Amino acid sequence: MTTYREVFADGEFRALFAANAAVVAGMTMQMLALSALVYASTGSPLLAALAYLGGYLPLAIGALTLLSLADRVRPRAFLAAWDGVRALAAITFAVGVLPTWAILAIVMAMGLLEAVAGAVRNALIVDILSTGGFVLGRSTFNVSVGAMQIIGFAVGGTLIAAIGPHPALFAGAAFMVVSAVLTRFGLRRRAPRVAGRAGLRETWHGTRVLWRDPAIRALLLALWLPNGIIVGAEAMYVPYAGSSAGILFIAAALGMLAGDVVVGRWVPPGRLDRLITPLQTLLAVPYLIFVFHPGTWLAAGAVAVASFGFAAALGLQRRLLDAMPEELRGQGLGLDSSGRMTLQAIGAFAVGSLAEAFGPAAAMTGAAVGSLLIVALLWRPLRRTGIVAFGHPAPSAVS
C-alpha cells in the first residue's frame, strides 16, 4: 500500500481509525481537564504533570505482567469493553466528589490494562493492512492523533476557560462511548492470535525473547527515551503558560501532524532510515529557546517545529516490526507503546521535579539538553545493530 486512498478503502480500517480518533480526543480532553483541576486545587507543577501523564507510569507494570493477553484476547470485545470502562472513569472524575489522591490513584490503576489495549490496537493495524501497509497505516493513526489532539485541546480548553474542567470531563466520556460503538459494530470478530492461557510466565518469556535481541533492544530504547523526555517538557505547558497552555498544546499537535503526513506519505523507507537521528535531534533543539522565557506565540512556534521530529518513530517502528517474531507481534508492539508511555510519565515526573526547584522554563530547557545527550548515546548502538542513523546502512542491516 502506497497511498492513503488504498488504506482507507478497507472499511474495517476506517472503523478502527475513527474509534482511535475518538479515544484520542476523549483522552486529550480528560488529561487537560485533570491537569487544570489538580493544578488549580494544589498549585503544584509536579502533581499537575502527574495528572496529565500519571496513567502512563503503571504501563511498565502492565507490560511486564499482563502483556501476553494482547495476543490471547478477542480484539473487538476487549477494546469495546475497555472504552466503556474509560468512559465510566471520566464520568466519575467529572462528578467532582473525589479528592486529588483518589483521582491520581484511579488514573494510575487504569494504566495497567492500557498497556494491553494499546498492544491490541496496534496489532490490529497489521492484521487489517498486512505488514506492507503498516507504516502508512501507522502514519494515518499518528496524523489522527495530531488532529484529534487539536480538537481535544481546543474543545477542552474552551470548556475549561468558560465553565471549568468538569464539563470537559463529561465531553471526554462521550468520545469514549463513541469509540466503543464504532469498535463493536465496525470491526469483525477475530479469534485470539495465540491459543492458551495468558499470565506472568508467558509475558516474561515473550519479553525476554524480545529484549535479548540486540536490534530490538536498540530500537525500543530509541523509541522510548528521547520522546519520553520531550513529552515530559510538554507536561509543563500548563505551569508555563497558564490559561494560554492550549495554544502550546495545539502547536505541538500541529507539528506532529505535519511530520507524520510529510514523512509517512512522501519519504521512501531507505531515506527515512537515514533521517531517524536528524529527526530526533530536531525534536529537542527548539526547546532550548525556553532558557530565554519566550512569549506564548514564540514558544508555540518552537514546539511546533520540535514536534515534527516525532516522525522519527515511523522509521523505528518499521524496523521493529521487521525484527519481531510474528507470534510475538502483539506483545512486541505493546512493549513499544507501553514503554514509550511509561518513559513519558517518568519524563513528566523528572521534568516536573526540576520545575518545582527551578521553574518550568528551566526544566523544559534541561529536558532538551537531556534528550540531545540520549540521542547522541544511542547513535552507536543503532549503527552497530545495522539500523541506519546518519550515513549509509551498515552491512548487517535488518531487512
Rank of each mutant, 00 (worst) to 15 (best):
T3Q: 00
E6I: 03
F8W: 11
F8N: 00
G11H: 10
R14M: 05
A22S: 14
V23N: 13
M31Q: 15
L32A: 14
L34K: 14
A36F: 09
L37T: 13
A40N: 11
A40E: 15
P45D: 06
P45K: 06
A51F: 00
Y52I: 04
L53M: 15
Y56P: 09
A60V: 14
A60E: 09
I61P: 04
T65S: 11
S68K: 08
V73W: 07
P75A: 11
A80W: 08
A80M: 05
W82P: 02
D83E: 14
V85P: 07
F93W: 05
V97A: 15
G111Q: 11
L124N: 05
L124Q: 12
I151T: 12
G152A: 08
A154C: 10
G157E: 04
G157I: 05
G157K: 04
H166N: 14
H166C: 07
V177G: 05
T183S: 02
A195E: 14
G206R: 03
L210Y: 08
I216T: 15
R217Y: 08
A218I: 03
A235S: 15
A241P: 06
S243F: 05
A253L: 06
G259H: 00
D260R: 08
R265Q: 12
R265W: 10
W266T: 10
D273L: 10
G295K: 07
T296Q: 05
W297G: 03
L298T: 13
A300N: 01
V303S: 03
A304P: 11
F308D: 06
F308H: 10
A311W: 04
G315K: 02
Q317T: 12
R318C: 02
D322P: 04
A323N: 04
L335G: 00
S337P: 02
S337R: 01
T342L: 02
S353H: 01
A355E: 03
P360D: 07
T365Q: 01
L372G: 05
L372F: 04
A376T: 14
R383Q: 14
I387V: 15
G391R: 10
P395M: 00
S396P: 03
A397T: 14
S399H: 14
